[in-house]
């Protein structure tokens, strides 16, 4: 009996400490409001887009699901707080194209949530693996290197092909995403129709300006092709009609093996590539090594997957990318 008592005392003690810690750390749980339409966005670029559309709408609450996540979502894991956001959600806006694979299973449990797939009907670029080499167009020269992703400029899709879902990096396609989100939002919440319409019109015109600026840029210096260290850049390259010779999808914390670095270096030399594009959030070591080895210029692009919650973050980021590109093009 004594032991029983000791064990219970220990359990009570641990519970007390746990509750104590919780009480100290807790910052009053948010209350549920049922009146409002809760719109949850899957991640940063979608949040920015949606924020611009619903700005000023009545009774609409916008929440971003993966708040503290830098980088792409491929390996994201939901926390209890994220799950709570989903429980309260009425609408979930996703990028689509496989970006939110982590959410798919979970959504089976939440049948009531209306999902807006912003890339619906937008043609995605493919990310091909070795098997698809023969189908790749002649402007892409490849070798038998392993781990090679080649951008398919023909745009025809194979069933087994992985899709590149960083759609927002092409301003024209980003506009289409906004259009998609707006249309579905209006059908789900007709009361705010005028606001949605007005907001997305202004925002779209801002992006169109950026798109124009991109199109007027003289990218002839890049016509040799570039090598990109992140899939996101493929869309920007598409907008500029620059061929991407070799694209490696590096995750935030993966590194290229020695053989892969050698392959990339060979690729750079064979094609006389003089520009390598990497992403802000990636580790710079691999791209840097390639650049140093080959004398190519390393350009760091912002793929706009994280940043502050500023409404104009997309516009600012894109302008930054454009001025970076301009600098590169005007150099020499």
């Amino acid at each position: 009996m004594k032991k029983r008592f000791v064990l219970l005392a220990i359990m009570a003690f641990v519970t007390l400490i746990g509750v104590g810690i919780t009480a100290v750390c807790s910052n009053n749980a948010t209350k549920q409001e049922d009146e409002t339409l809760t719109v949850v966005t899957s991640f940063y670029p979608i949040y920015i887009a949606t924020e611009n559309i619903i700005d000023g709408a009545n009774n609409v609450e916008l929440v971003n699901l993966t708040e503290n996540q830098g980088g792409c979502l491929h390996d994201y894991q939901l926390t209890t707080a994220d799950m709570r956001k989903l429980e309260n959600a009425d609408v979930l806006v996703v990028n689509g194209g496989g970006m939110e694979s982590f959410i798919e299973e979970i959504l089976d449990n939440y049948k009531d949530i209306k999902v807006i797939d912003s890339s619906e009907g937008i043609e995605l670029l493919g990310v091909q693996h070795e098997e698809g080499h023969e189908e790749a167009k002649d402007e892409i020269s490849t070798d038998d290197a392993t781990n090679e992703d080649v951008i398919n400029h023909e745009g025809h899709h194979h069933e087994e092909e992985m899709q590149n879902s960083h759609v927002w990096m092409n301003p024209d396609k980003y506009i289409m995403q906004i259009e998609n989100i707006k249309k579905r939002l209006i059908s789900l919440d007709p009361e705010n129709q005028t606001i949605y319409q007005k907001n997305s019109d202004t925002y779209t015109s801002d992006i169109e300006a950026i798109s124009e600026e991109l199109k007027t840029m003289d990218a002839s210096k890049l016509q040799h092709g570039i090598i990109s260290f992140h899939d996101a850049f493929a869309y920007l390259a598409d907008a500029l009609s620059i061929p991407v010779i070799h694209s490696i999808d590096l995750d935030k914390d993966t590194y290229l093996s020695a053989g892969e670095v050698a392959d990339v270096i060979n690729e750079v030399r064979d094609n006389e590539v003089s520009y390598i594009f990497s992403e802000e959030q990636l580790s710079e070591s691999s791209p840097k090594r390639v650049a140093e080895e080959t004398g190519a210029t390393l350009c760091i692009v912002d793929s706009l997957v994280s940043g502050d919650m500023n409404k104009d973050a997309y516009l600012i980021g894109m302008r930054k990318n454009i001025s970076m590109l301009k600098q590169v093009l005007e150099d020499e």
């Binding site: 390996d75 894991q77 799950m83 979970i106 449990n109 993966t254």
Partner: peptide
């Protein structure tokens, strides 16, 4: 699993995810 730099997909095996159980 880390071939093609895809290991991140399996990293949830390391700490588990009881919240997604069906």
């Amino acid at each position: 699993l880390s071939k093609n730099g895809q290991f991140a997909k399996y990293s949830n095996l390391l700490v588990g995810d009881i919240l997604s159980i069906t």
